[in-house]
Design a protein around this nucleic acid. Sequence first.
RNA 1: GGCGACGUAGCCAAGUGGCAAGGCAGAGGUCUGCAAAACCUCCAUCCCCAGUUCGAUUCUGGGCGUCGCCUCCA
Length: 370
Amino acid sequence: MSTLRALRAEHYPRATEHIPEMVAMITTLLEQGNAYMADGDVYFRIATFPAYGELSHLDRAGLRPGARVSTDKYDKESVSDFALWKKSQPGDEKLGAGWDAPFGLGRPGWHIECSAMSKRYLGDTLDIHAGGIDLMFPHHENEIAQSEAANHKTFARVWLHSEHLADATGEKMSKSAGAFTTLRDLLNAGHDPLAIRFFLIANAHYRARLRLSNETLHSAAEQVRRLREFADRVNRTQPAAEDDANFTARVAEVRTGYREALDDDLNLPHGIGLVFELIREANAALDAERVGEQGLAELRGLIDEVDAHLDVVHAEEPGLAEEVERLIAEREDARKSRDFAKADRIREDLRQRGIALEDSKEGVRWRRVK
RNA sequence: GGCGACGUAGCCAAGUGGCAAGGCAGAGGUCUGCAAAACCUCCAUCCCCAGUUCGAUUCUGGGCGUCGCCUCCA
């Protein structure tokens, strides 16, 4: 997660350390009649929760009971009732998977932990509950049922379900099917972490399936490079004597558009599109020296705002390697004496070491490349 | 079989009832000692058919195709 520069959560609660919270919630559900015991297990009684299925627009009548009954041969009242607590099975204790509860030795069902732990750390009502689209049913549906039945409060105000990452063929990456690519794989293949980050959050809308391929990652890497080049240029450019009011207004306009795109269900791809459009215009304006003090300030403000979300521009400011600077100076001397063979050799040597040089009016710049 | 999502240029992708953002890749230029970066120019009858409409990629219906969920992976 740190490779991708993801922020850490405040809490990483462990289910096994919150058994009492789960037991308490199950007890409440039992007392209220939202749950019942059957053959030593505790099940949630879906019949007591009419809203069940609303999140996933599931028509319970359309469920195929056959599919689960074969593996779930217990005395449930309804096939869709799900387990809150399962009595200990032979062998459970060896694994340390057995806890004492008023309703018998056993282990929690596999949805109750989320209800119990989110209640403890975040309260009865969450502002936003996020998760992968495949968790919508049954996991989130069950969470809602448990939490709302127990707490008598709305469980989550907003649900944010993201689509899956898929491989280049469009198939969902699946751990069980053995078809997946790890972050480590990508890094080993030479992909830049920042490019991977950009790809993941900005390549497509979060509700659209992302397809991972060398081509999409390369595209992301180029976009990151372009953003960074531009930010770099804005930072080292001296303001023009006068501002072009039209240009300054244009930057503000894009900034507003960017915000509106994000406000519209986090449409980052759209917002980024606006920003790239502006970058082209801004580069042209910078060439024409139409950007003064105010224009530069506007541009910096926009970059900062965008990078607050992308976090790929200000990331890892590489310190200037003294040797690179020395070689650049040496090459400059060679160029001044028109010894281009030597100048090109130095540039090529650096290139081999992953350092690219760019000559410009403001001097020589260098950056890391693959 | 049930429920749902999607189908936009070589690739990724946004979007709207009124001549289709952006990025990558590609072609040609400008600039440069050569490059790089940057800029300019070029590159799509929006899966098919029918309907509604003055007008549909955008709405409706029907196809075809891809994918997801309906499994105690959570």
